[in-house]
Design a binder for these strands. Structure first.
Length: 874
RNA sequence: GGAAGCAUAGCUCAGUUGGUUCAGAGCAUCUGCCUUACAAGCAGAGGGUCCGCGGUUCGAGCCCGUGUGCUUCCA
């Protein structure tokens, strides 16, 4: 087979992904093996792949592929969530393009369009995951609005209501005036915003005096129901208990005191608008203030405002300033910057608003979810996130689950004309309950118009993808649940992790996953979070096209330290592509030897036997390291270890050591070993870079049907021979030192040298001499017991090397180097001797530590002796 | 205003109960090489007051205190 110059990733990716899929390698059904399960954190159905997904899903694929190769029954469940707000926004936009107003449609008509949109455009992201090589069980693809799933969400709502965990309450919420929906705190983005601080004068009742307040929202003064000052503020002490008049509308409001007020901010006097500010609302509750709501749900002013009725809130702000000025109420205006909340979805300024919503009483359900994390039943990687989790759980706030949207799970609450309600899974059931509850029958109840927060469905994900709630105790859920690992971003810790644990404990009486691995956040080179609005997020599909999926997977993982944010740069993909190239060239080299194997090449056997012995041991050593790194979720380090094992140990050392001379044959056994090592390396690398490794695996040898790397099982770990590893390290050190001598003395690599070695351990050198000779291009190697005159000398560890060459010798550079080494060693020896001379050290330190120091001393002395002798012979 | 995290080479980061030659890796840089697998490469090299200060200890990059700087989360 003729190999192409470079690895051709496009063709390979298409070929292997469909090959694996056709053979159902990614599909899982329960059997007697140990399961390894990951449920994908369901991406938004409107989503497209970005770098965050790339990181997150590469990690999941690495874990799943490795588990599959370790003999576990690996199952990775794909799917999407319905993303109420985002999807509804997309559908509304699509309708607008068609010239259709959402308001002109019935709920059913709208949902018809929404499903049409979902079928056509939704879930693109799942197709994109295939491009990345993700080994998901596609037969298990789930969606949070699948019929069974939908019903489960409704049933859970009814169940929680019946348990008394839900309530309906008027509460201050974040209101999106554009989407006309409530937002959770997490959906509000705070941004530094340039504003103006207006100082306004309020007339005091019964005194010829004013009080001046400072506000950034002058359009809300019509909702003012008090002015608040600090009780210890001397400036206002005489006004306690008095009343003031709101400018323009002359409402009479009390002046109250509360130490909530910051005395040195603004004027120290705060206008209190309970209907339109979170803190004011709490203040209002505490002081029993009237609540005057002056806004409609779209952010325009209503009749209670008395003036500027029908104006938008920001228009009203512009218009009220001249009115206040004219009334003599505006004292001054100053620039002011503060954080303002914006809707994550529509980017409009969030309006605090009082609204009747459904809530989950989190204190009733959260308890067990804190314990299982704190006692490590659910292990967090990195563990530092336990703190964050505990803090949030201990200060948990109730969860507003209503959304004023149509796309989603419609709240199963049913109302009569007076607003009496029952909660039931169906209209029919609701009518029955109504009769029982209110003692009268009714023909018609109307269902709540709102739907549920998307998270209220995705918190069931870890078990409901196996129908663990809709079909309790079925074979799948028994086998796969609890799942093994959840891989997610730390910003999701409250949305998913905490609530999934709560739902798991509530409905399966078991944790949903044993481990949670938090990835970092992908940032650009300048440390900015990647986002659509900044435009600093690269198009992943283009990157895959350009560099290949393997290179992209490599690029994102190599720059991803465990649990820390990563500054991603396209150059890391280049490193991945270069690595592909390296692998491909190694393949080309090995394939070149294939036709030239021979059974009786004594030369290559003798030369290569140490190389073959060493690499087998090196492989065992590395496998143990990699195993440990995986246990600690240090995937980036594991990849680095494999990268260096392949590039440095295999390509730079091993292949060079066993490489036959130009057009020379290679021993068949050495060749077979080399292919076997190459295979093992591909197997180690496969979870990270599945395509090229499968390609090379098949290119190395003809394979029987079903002999594919994706499902090839890892061999058991074997221990490495430390003595062999040590000798190889010594060999590498000597080769490097001698090459350095060549560079420093400008001896061309083509020019042969004669090498003499002065060592106490000739036997060891005899094992590696042939390799050494080849690697430093020495025409002869011999062993001496004294300095050889007229040579260049160098010292490695305790051994001395004499290099004879045709060339004239300039001893100055080697002298310089030897003196430098000597200087360092003497300093080192000095510090060791000082330590050993310190009685307290010898008494207090552990005996083995003292012993190590003694050995250091002896080693240093031996080296110093060798260098001094070398210097003397110059 | 409350809380947490981070600070090690030009850049991004490792450094696992304080003790092997501990001051490391990758990338970048410099020097020399088109050596029949690979210039997307090979060989070699240079580069750091481990943020400042103080403490604990025989011994601190690591532990404690403090200052400074940066980041994030929550008000």
């Amino acid at each position: 087979m003729e190999l192409s110059k470079n690895f051709e990733h496009q063709a390979s990716e298409e070929k292997w992904y469909s090959y694996w899929n056709e053979r159902k390698y990614f599909n899982s059904t329960p059997d007697e093996r140990e399961p390894y399960t990951i449920v994908i954190p369901p991406p938004n159905v409107t989503g497209v792949l970005h770098m965050g997904h790339c990181l997150n899903n590469t990690i999941q694929d690495v874990l799943v592929r490795r588990a599959r190769m370790q003999g576990k029954n690996a199952c990775w469940v794909p799917g999407t969530d319905h993303a109420s707000i985002a999807t509804e926004a997309k559908v509304v936009q699509m309708l607008r393009e068609k010239g259709i107003q959402k308001a002109s449609l019935s709920r059913d008509e709208f949902l018809g369009y929404a499903w049409e949109w979902k079928e056509k455009y939704g879930g693109i992201i799942l197709q994109q995951l295939k491009k990345m090589g993700c080994s998901l069980d596609w037969d298990r693809t789930s969606f949070t609005m699948d019929p069974d799933y939908y019903q489960s969400v409704i049933n859970v709502f009814v169940d929680l209501y019946n348990k008394g965990y839900l309530y309906r309450g008027k509460r201050m919420i974040n209101w999106d005036v554009k989407a006309k929906t409530a937002l959770s705190d997490e959906e509000v983005i705070r941004k530094e915003t340039q504003q103006k601080l207006y100082h306004l004068r309020y007339k005091i009742d019964g005194l010829d005096e004013h009080i001046i307040i400072a506000t950034v929202r002058p359009e809300t003064i019509m909702g003012d129901t008090a002015i608040c000052v600090h009780p210890k503020d001397e400036r206002y002490a005489h006004l306690h208990g008095k009343f003031a008049f709101v400018p323009l509308i002359n409402r009479r409001i009390p002046i109250i005191t509360d130490d909530y007020v910051t005395m040195d901010f603004g004027t120290g006097a705060l206008k209190v608008t309970p209907a339109h500010d979170m803190n004011d609302y709490q203040l209002g509750q505490k002081h029993n203030l009237e609540v005057v709501d002056i806004f409609n749900e779209d952010g325009t002013l209503n009749a209670d405002a008395q003036i500027l009725i029908g104006e938008d809130r920001f228009e009203a702000r512009k218009k009220i300033i001249p009115m206040l000025e004219e009334a003599g109420s505006l004292v001054k205006t100053e620039d002011y910057t503060s954080e303002v909340g914006y809707s994550e979805r529509t980017d409009v300024v969030v309006e605090p608003r009082l609204s009747l919503q459904w809530w989950v009483d989190m204190k009733k359900i959260a308890g067990p979810a804190l314990d299982v994390v704190m006692n490590d039943d659910v292990k967090f990687y990195p563990a530092k996130f336990k703190n964050l989790y505990r803090h949030w759980m201990e200060n948990i706030k109730d969860w507003c689950i209503s959304r004023q949207l149509w796309w989603g799970h419609r709240i199963p609450a049913w109302y009569d004309a007076e607003g009496n309600y029952v909660v039931a899974v169906s209209h029919e059931e609701a009518l029955k309950q109504y009769e029982t509850k209110f003692g009268k029958s009714i023909a018609q109840l109307s269902q709540d118009e709102d739907c549920l927060d998307t998270w209220f469905s995705s918190w069931l994900w870890p078990f409901e993808v196996f129908k663990g709630y809709s079909n309790p105790g079925n074979a799948d859920v028994q086998y796969y649940y609890p799942t093994n690992t959840l891989v997610t971003a730390p910003e999701i810790i409250f949305f998913w992790v905490a609530r999934m644990i709560m739902a798991g404990m509530e409905y399966q009486k078991e944790i949903p996953f044993k481990e949670v691995y938090f990835t970092g956040i992908v940032r650009d080179k300048q440390g900015r979070k990647m986002s659509k609005s900044l435009g600093n997020s690269p198009d992943l599909l283009e990157l895959i096209d350009k560099y290949g999926a393997d290179a992209c997977r490599f690029g994102i993982l190599i720059s991803s330290p465990a649990g820390n944010d990563l500054l991603w740069d396209e150059s890391s993909n280049e490193q991945g592509r270069n690595f592909n190239n390296k692998l491909w060239n190694a393949l080309k080299l090995v394939k070149m030897w294939e036709a030239r194997t021979t059974d009786n090449s004594q030369q290559t056997t003798a030369e290569s036997s140490f190389a073959v012995e060493w690499f087998g041991n090196r492989l065992n050593e590395a496998k143990a390291e990699i195993d440990q790194l995986f246990k600690e979720f240090r995937l980036s380090e594991a990849l680095k270890t494999i990268y260096s094992l392949i590039w440095d140990d295999f390509c730079s050392w091993y292949l060079e050591w066993v490489k036959p001379g130009f057009e020379q044959p290679i021993d068949a056994e050495v060749y077979a070993k080399t292919v076997a090592y190459f295979e093992e390396l591909m197997q180690l690398l496969h979870p990270f870079m599945p395509f090229i490794t499968e390609e090379i695996y098949h290119a190395l040898k003809e394979r029987a049907a079903g002999d594919d790397l994706t499902i090839k099982q890892y061999a058991a770990l074997e221990t490495a021979d430390a003595a062999v590893l040590h000798l190889a390290t010594q060999l590498k050190e000597v080769i490097t030192a001698l090459r350095d001598v060549r560079v420093k003395n400008q001896i061309k690599s083509k020019d042969p040298i004669k090498l003499s070695i002065e060592t106490a351990d000739v036997d060891s050198y005899k094992r590696i001499a042939l390799i050494l000779q080849k690697q430093v291009n020495a025409e002869s190697v011999d062993y001496v017991t004294a300095a050889v005159a007229g040579t260049i000398s160098t010292v490695v560890q305790k051994d001395k090397f004499y290099i004879a060459t045709e060339q004239a010798i300039d001893t100055s550079s080697q002298k310089e180097q030897l003196l430098k080494d000597l200087d360092y060693l003497k300093g080192f020896l000095n510090s060791v001797e000082k330590k050993l001379g310190n009685e307290r050290f010898v008494q207090n330190a552990k005996p083995e530590v003292v012993e190590v120091e003694r050995k250091k001393k002896a080693d240093a002395e031996a080296k110093i002796k060798a260098i001094e002798e070398s210097l003397a012979s110059l």
